[in-house]
Write a protein that binds this DNA or RNA. Structure first.
Lengths: 358, 358
DNA sequence: CGAAATAACGGTAACGCTAACGTTATTTTT
DNA sequence: AAAAATAACGTTAGCGTTACCGTTATTTCG
């Protein structure tokens, strides 16, 4: 067993091995210029003393820190899923992850964090980049940046889910159930994901011949309260929708509360579909039909991209789109159906395939 | 406006100000030994050039990095709440926070992260320390450590909620509603919080003369699936409980699913109480009566403690206990009551006061 | 077999900063 | 007015590491 009470330095193990620090450095970094015997001995001694290289010093002397910075708002499950995914994708690499958690009111980190990251990390993954001005200065400083989802003026390589197709699947599903009057609760339109979902809604309205009153679009903000308020608006309409598609699950949860608050039931009176498939979607009652984002794959793609960029390889494409799929649960039902429907024990999954717009 | 394209160094601004680097350093660090005119000029030039001190270099030369490391499992809302709270408590200090996210299967970070933190951060806050062996080596290396909640062999200053009293409030509430046969879904007994809640349950069983069959305690693990399975067990009892107290909200959500799965309803057939008051508690249907942990205050206390420790002040007490309170929602109801109860619009809060055990 | 290439090292400087000690002038003290 | 204290600087060294350029021996080649 190695003891590492006092974290030994390179010069210490060099002294014990009776070599120069440079030889020790070369041996430990697997670089040429050391005989095999010396290398083995140095490695043995280092192991013995529990030596771990000081990454602060390595970084200062011009090297890499092998740390990836992640900037995220941690108070939503969806974001946490991605962070966890990044962590596990990174586990098989030689990089570590440190996360800066944006508060729910901030759209960008304080200047101190920005310069700290610039000084310390080798690359940055930004989840839901509501704002990206501050990222430009980092990028100018040769720091590789990858974003998950797309914010305004986002010229960095980005990983996104196929929000447009996912939303189409959701609307198609509601239409298949006979719904013609479908309300939409929008998200935060700073994000391309929100815009894409809304665009899909509008396109499908036209394509499928759904009701198109402008009042059928209520603006949310991806938060529960926003979903609640938006649903309230939709329910106040004289001719109220028979189904609602919320731009994300949290909005849908808010909408569900609003619907219940109005004395109505999901799905008996109103069908409801969300987006993301966060944990709460399968935990609430009724369980929520939603569009699943491939967060694990997105995280992996982000990691692969940033690692490649750190290695100096420019990514082949500046955007990677991953497929979404519809997850059917208990919050949707055919229009007008009155027969009691047992809780479906296991949700069915529908792959992201839809006939092209004709 | 200051431009900071290339992040200038101390020697650069020293050259421009025509002083030595030390004078510049002293001026910028507000230390004596510089005339007021020079100080002002140096500050002006630094501002002009957008100078920010390199914390990597500061750290290497023996100083502080002004970074607090946070170790947490990010996939539960409760933990995220605490992380967010730590972030905002830190915002008014001169420290920044970087989070290492433990995967859901790991109870301790990899060695690489441990040594990285040791080299870089000034102090560490650990949330839910399932395991703390690895922390001892950090503490030996003079790194201040504070934990939120208490793990095994935890000799570090710790911030905890009053789990015992909170659990008592919950049981008392159920007993007040007439329940005598109350089931308990335990948590992860590695954590003192889990043990305290269970102890309170057992103590109250005796004190209030409740049913005490051993089968009334089912073991969960603070996770939804664990709560689901535990509730299934409780429901299989020939004489099944009329109320269930789950050691945390996520277990309670799992229990709710199990209850529904068995064709029963909350609260008509079974009253249910959770612990934590995470967001989902007020989002599910029926909304969950639970014990609220003061996460914002806990976060603030942790920050105050770690900052004091970094400043060399040993904390007055090695444990800070903060009060919990019962939040009444829709998942509990008097035993045997059949009258329809409207959703209470606004939950009532009951302060953590209970008559002393007599 | 002498010149050139190679392998295996060591020394020095640098990354950006600060602690610790010098070195001057300018005050203050007695 | 000489000695002592103080203020305002500058110089040097060092944090732990690596890049770059030596310096030796040993090998390779024409």
């Amino acid at each position: 067993m190695s003891t590492n009470k006092k974290s030994s330095t390179l010069s210490e193990i060099a002294k014990i091995a009776e070599v120069s620090v440079m030889t020790a450095s070369r041996a430990l970094n697997n670089q040429p210029g050391v005989s095999e015997e010396k290398r083995a001995e140095i490695l043995r001694i280092a192991e013995d003393m529990g030596y771990v290289a000081n990454r602060i010093a390595q970084r200062l002397s011009g090297g890499k820190s092998r740390v990836i910075g992640v900037i995220a708002q941690l108070h939503t499950l969806y974001t946490s899923d991605l962070v966890l995914g990044i962590g596990s994708a990174l586990r098989s690499s030689k990089y570590e992850m440190l996360v800066y958690s944006l508060s729910d009111t901030d759209s960008q980190p304080p200047q101190a964090i920005v310069s700290l990251l610039r000084q310390f990390v080798d690359g940055i993954i930004v989840i839901l980049p509501f704002q990206s001005d501050y990222l430009v200065s980092l990028s100018d400083a040769d720091l590789p940046i990858v974003t998950i989802d797309e914010g305004p003026h986002n010229n960095f390589p980005k990983i996104v889910a196929d929000n447009y197709q996912g939303a189409r699947l959701a609307i198609q599903h509601l239409a298949n159930l006979g719904h013609r009057r479908i309300g939409f609760i929008s998200g935060n339109n700073q994000l391309a994901s929100a815009r894409d979902r809304e665009q899909a809604f509008r396109d499908m309205q036209a394509q499928l011949g759904l009701d198109t009153d402008p009042e059928l679009v209520a603006s949310g903000n991806f938060l529960q309260q926003g979903g609640f308020n938006a649903a309230k608006e939709l329910l106040r309409l004289s001719d109220r929708p028979t189904a609602i598609f919320a731009a994300n699950d949290i909005s849908a949860v808010g909408a569900m509360a609003a619907i219940r608050d109005a004395g109505l039931n999901v799905p008996e009176d109103i069908s409801l579909v969300g987006f993301d498939d966060v944990a709460v979607a399968s935990q609430i009652y009724p369980t929520l039909t939603t569009v699943k984002q491939p967060s694990a794959q997105m995280a992996r793609a982000a990691v692969n991209t940033i690692v490649a960029m750190i290695a100096g390889i420019e990514p082949a494409s500046s955007i990677i789109v991953l497929p979404t799929e519809l997850v059917l649960r208990a919050s949707t039902r055919p229009l007008g159906e009155v027969v009691a429907m047992p809780n479906s024990k296991r949700p069915r999954h529908i792959k992201n395939r839809i006939s092209p717009a004709g």
